[in-house]
Design a binder for these strands. Structure first.
Length: 586
DNA sequence: GCCGTTTTCGGCCCGACTGTTTTCAGTCG
């Protein structure tokens, strides 16, 4: 059923794309209507297939006409209007809009005047210098298009994973901070919203002297090509194909600018509508009176939100997924502060083949972070190279017990292990050996390409095992590299409730697993999560800073995350988890 | 095409930069 929702999303995407061409502008009201409907469907919960036409119109942005098309699609598999649009706008023509610099107007003109209906035809026309002859086009446009097509061929519109983008953004902001002209610098855009992948990197700088800053970027060693070079805005691409947009504003405009360049388009539109309702104007420089231009607020995001009758909304929530409405009635999710995490439950030491810090260092580092409980979870033996044999684990247990004696009451050490879920859902060692641990998580590390039914079955089997407290990185994805295993998420969430098996929120940037989508789907359910660092080195304990952002983005309630609980409550719960299973299976 | 404590029509967010213009349209974010 989740697939049907995905199909409807595809349908609406195509409607939007073709309507953009048909209307001649991405700002056309019809186009925006489809865009709104698209978001309404994306954020809905429940089974779209069983929804009536009138139920569909209750979704945000979905009116009578779109509801009818969705029903038409769900029952017949086709939509009359879409078929007509497809006929009018063949795939080759649609493909042309992928070229940066070619919008609907230009595509229509090329088609009408030169009969260009495919990328090949466009290349040919460019080679023959046919395009510069058209009114409104010229030699420079030809060159720009040629270059854009080249780039498209080299991997095109690939998005960059957060694991790659974030360090780069931090580096650039740090470098900007050293420039004498820079007063403040902050990365914004989808990266600040903590999206898993980003299309481009937006950086906002406060300065009274933009020219040297823009020059700094244009001449930066990472830069491959300059797309735009002005005093207020400069855009470049890096050698790896990531676009960077740098905006410079005055210091007193910084809040307005970071607000403007952080919110999703839809979030910003809602804010501007609120401004309009009050007779004001909101742009990247200020919130000001529409006539006369007297500034209401501009220096900080807080002041602007406040003037619009809203509390400051955490950046990761600014998607127009209901956060503005929730902010209004005072029910925004609160999020989790780092010091509200009382323990880490997925940590490796150098006993695991890929661990790099000693047990002593890990315990010390956890203590420094104020934790009152910590689970040491080496890889179990079935994982080649990294896995640990029984004897070594028993030795470690003795060491941990000795350390516990010295630690006294300051911190509780749990001896755990990260089990491997094989293709059939079987786990390492034997049942008795597994049950002797204080804490077991079970994770998929192999066989990522099995069909959905088998993947789901292996996870469900592991969840039902009496030794298992938690499933680690459920989908086993690495963002931007490997898609997650295919799963029936509803079946997994059902099992999590039934077996009281926790799901991990793995804070590592390449993983961020479970995903925001799964977190949101679990929101109305009684599922317990545990946030972990999956640290293989003491420094990686700090990955929790990403986990809390990710969890907030998924609207996860603090009390659903078990390691925000007190030590006594957590330990009691983890024991209870297993006792229940033992009883249920006896 | 959607929507409504200014409802059933008439609105619907805003600005920078570029290229080709000679005052602005198109594209992008």
């Amino acid at each position: 059923m989740a697939d049907r929702k995905a199909e409807v999303i595809d349908l609406l995407r195509e409607m939007r794309e073709l309507t953009t061409l048909d209307e001649g502008s991405p700002q056309a009201f019809r186009v925006r209507a489809y865009e709104n409907a698209l978001r309404g469907v994306e954020t809905m919960t429940g089974d779209i297939e069983t929804m009536s036409e009138s139920a569909l119109t209750k979704l945000d942005g979905v009116g009578k006409s779109t509801a009818k098309k969705i029903r038409e699609y769900l029952t017949s598999g086709r939509v009359e209007k879409l078929e007509k649009l497809r006929e009018k706008w063949p795939p080759g023509v649609v493909e042309l809009t992928q070229v940066p610099g070619l919008g609907p107007k230009a595509v229509t003109k090329l088609r009408k005047e030169l009969g260009i209906e495919s990328m090949a035809a466009l290349r040919e026309a460019l080679a023959g210098q046919k395009i510069r002859a058209l009114a409104g086009f010229g030699e420079k446009t030809e060159k720009k298009l040629l270059k854009a097509i080249e780039r498209l061929g080299l991997g095109g519109d690939k998005r960059t994973s957060i694991a790659k983008a974030l360090p780069l953004a931090q580096r650039l902001v740090a470098e900007l901070d050293t420039l004498p002209q820079v007063q403040r610098a902050r990365y914004c855009g989808s990266l600040r919203r903590f999206r898993e992948t980003i299309g481009d990197l937006d950086i906002v700088v406060a300065s009274e002297d933009a020219k040297p800053i823009m020059r700094w970027l244009v001449e930066h060693a990472l830069v491959d090509d300059v797309l735009v070079h002005g005093d207020k805005k400069t855009s470049v691409t890096t050698r790896k194909g990531l676009q960077i947009d740098l905006r410079v504003v005055a210091a007193h405009q910084f809040g307005a600018a970071t607000l403007y360049f952080t919110g999703s388009k839809a979030h910003n539109i809602k804010l501007r509508q609120r401004a309009m309702d009050r007779g004001w104007l909101l742009n990247e420089y200020a919130l000001e009176e529409a006539d006369g231009g007297k500034v209401i607020a501009s220096e900080t995001e807080e002041e602007i939100y406040e003037a619009l009758g809203l509390p400051w909304i955490p950046e990761v929530l600014r998607e127009d997924n209901g956060e503005i409405e929730r902010a209004l009635d005072g029910t925004l999710p609160g999020g989790i502060a780092l010091d509200e995490l009382n323990g880490d439950l997925h940590v490796h030491t150098d006993l695991s083949g890929d661990g790099r810090s000693s047990l002593e260092d890990m315990v010390e580092a956890a203590k420094e972070r104020g934790y009152t409980f910590l689970a040491i979870t080496e890889h179990a033996e079935d994982l080649p190279l990294q896995g640990v044999k029984r004897d070594a684990l028993l030795e470690q247990r003795a060491r941990i017990q000795a350390m516990q004696g010295k630690l006294g009451d300051t911190m509780t050490l749990l001896h755990g292990v990260e089990l491997n879920i094989d293709g059939d859902g079987n786990l390492d060692y034997d049942a008795d050996f597994r049950r002797a641990f204080d804490w077991c998580l079970a994770s998929v590390h192999t066989q990522f390409d099995l069909p959905k039914e088998r993947q789901t079955a292996r996870i469900l089997k592991a969840m039902a095992d009496p030794s298992v407290n938690m499933i680690g990185h459920l989908t086993a994805r690495t963002i931007g590299k490997r898609p997650g295993i295919e799963l029936d998420i509803d079946a997994v969430l059902d099992a999590a409730e039934k077996h009281r098996c926790a799901l991990e929120i793995n804070s590592g940037l390449p993983r961020l697993d479970v995903s925001v989508d799964i977190l949101r789907r679990a929101r109305e359910r009684d599922v317990t999560f545990v946030m972990t660092s999956d640290a293989h080195h003491t420094s990686e304990l700090d990955r929790m800073q990403w986990g809390v952002q990710h969890a907030l983005r998924g609207w996860t309630r603090k009390d659903r995350v078990a390691n925000t609980w007190t030590r006594d409550r957590f330990v009691a719960w983890s024991r209870e988890q297993r006792r229940n299973e033992a009883g249920a299976n006896a």
